[in-house]
C-alpha cells in the first residue's frame, strides 16, 4: 500500500516491555556511512509506486550521535517520506523537534507501553510514559505552528502485561495529539482480550484517533480496524 523501508540505526531493536524482556539494552550504533549506503541501495531498488519512504528505527534513533547526518542522507538520497520510530522522550526537547521538522521528518511512530505507573514499569523508567506523551504533544504543536502536516502514530506493543490498558493508552495518545494508534501483538498470543481491543477501537473513534490492530483478534464488528496485508503506518 504505502510501504516504508525500515532501516535500523542501531541495535537492539526493543519493542517489548521490560517485564517481557528484562535485560537492560546496551546500544550498538551503525555508522552514518554504512547507513547512507543502505539508504542509497533502497532508493535504487525501490519499485513501489509511492515513495521511496524510510522509517529510521532500531535502537532509539534520537540517542544515535549522528542522527542529523543520517536524516540528511535520507533526504539527499531522495526519500519522499522520512519517519522515525522513537520512544518519544526526545521529542519533548524543542531543539530535537525543530531539527527533525527542519530536516524533513514528517512521520513519527512513538512506542507507548502504557500509561501512568503501570506504563512506566513496562517502559522501565519512572516518568517514561508522561515524557513520551509530552513528546507527541510538542511535536504536533510545533508542526502545527509551522504549518507542516505530519503523521504521528502511537504504537502499542500489546502483551499480557498491558492488554487491559489498551483503551487508556488510546485515550492518552489521542489527548496528546496522535492521529493514529496501532495496537500490535508482542510476545505470546493473549486469549480473551477481544472486548478490551474493541473498547480501545471505540475509544479511538470517540476521540477522533484511528486505531488499527495488528496480529491480535478483534470482534467481527470491529473488523475494519484490522490491519490489512501489507498495511501499517
Amino acid at each position: 500500500m504505502l510501504p516504508f523501508a525500515r532501516v535500523e540505526v542501531g541495535m537492539p531493536s526493543r519493542r517489548r516491555c521490560r517485564l517481557c524482556d528484562p535485560a537492560a539494552p546496551s546500544f550498538v550504533w551503525r555508522s552514518p556511512a554504512d547507513l547512507a549506503a543502505e539508504l542509497r541501495e533502497i532508493v535504487a531498488e525501490w519499485t513501489a509506486p509511492v515513495g521511496p519512504s524510510v522509517m529510521l528505527a532500531g535502537a532509539e534513533p534520537f540517542l544515535h550521535p549522528e542522527l542529523p547526518t543520517i536524516v540528511a542522507s535520507a533526504r539527499n538520497e531522495g526519500f519522499e517520506r522520512i519517519g522515525i520510530e522513537t520512544d518519544g522522550v526526545a521529542l519533548d526537547v524543542e531543539q530535537n523537534v525543530r531539527g527533525s521538522l527542519g530536516a524533513g521528518v514528517r512521520h513519527v511512530r512513538v512506542t507507548l507501553f502504557g500509561v501512568g505507573p503501570v506504563g512506566d514499569r513496562l517502559a522501565g523508567r519512572s516518568g517514561a510514559c508522561d515524557a513520551s506523551l509530552a513528546g507527541i504533544r510538542r511535536f504536533v504543536r510545533a508542526a502545527d505552528a509551522a504549518g507542516m502536516p505530519v503523521a504521528v502514530a502511537a504504537v502499542v506493543p500489546v502483551c499480557r502485561h498491558n492488554a487491559d490498558q489498551a483503551h487508556l493508552v488510546v485515550a492518552a495518545a489521542a489527548q496528546a495529539g496522535a492521529g493514529h494508534v496501532r495496537l500490535e501483538a508482542a510476545g505470546d498470543p493473549i486469549a480473551g482480550i477481544e472486548a478490551v481491543l474493541a473498547a480501545a477501537c471505540d475509544t479511538g473513534t470517540v476521540n477522533r484517533v484511528w486505531v488499527e490492530v495488528a496480529g491480535l483478534e478483534v470482534p467481527e464488528s470491529h473488523a475494519v480496524h484490522r490491519v490489512r496485508e501489507g498495511g501499517g503506518a
Binding site: M1, L2, R81, R106, H107, D144, P149, V150, A151, G179, H180, R208, W210, E212, V224, V227, R228, G231, A233
Partner: peptide
Amino acid sequence: DAGTDPWWVAYRVLQL
C-alpha cells in the same frame, strides 16, 4: 479533519 496530513488521508483510504 482539514489539515490532516494528506499522506495520512491516503493511508486511511487505501486501507479500505
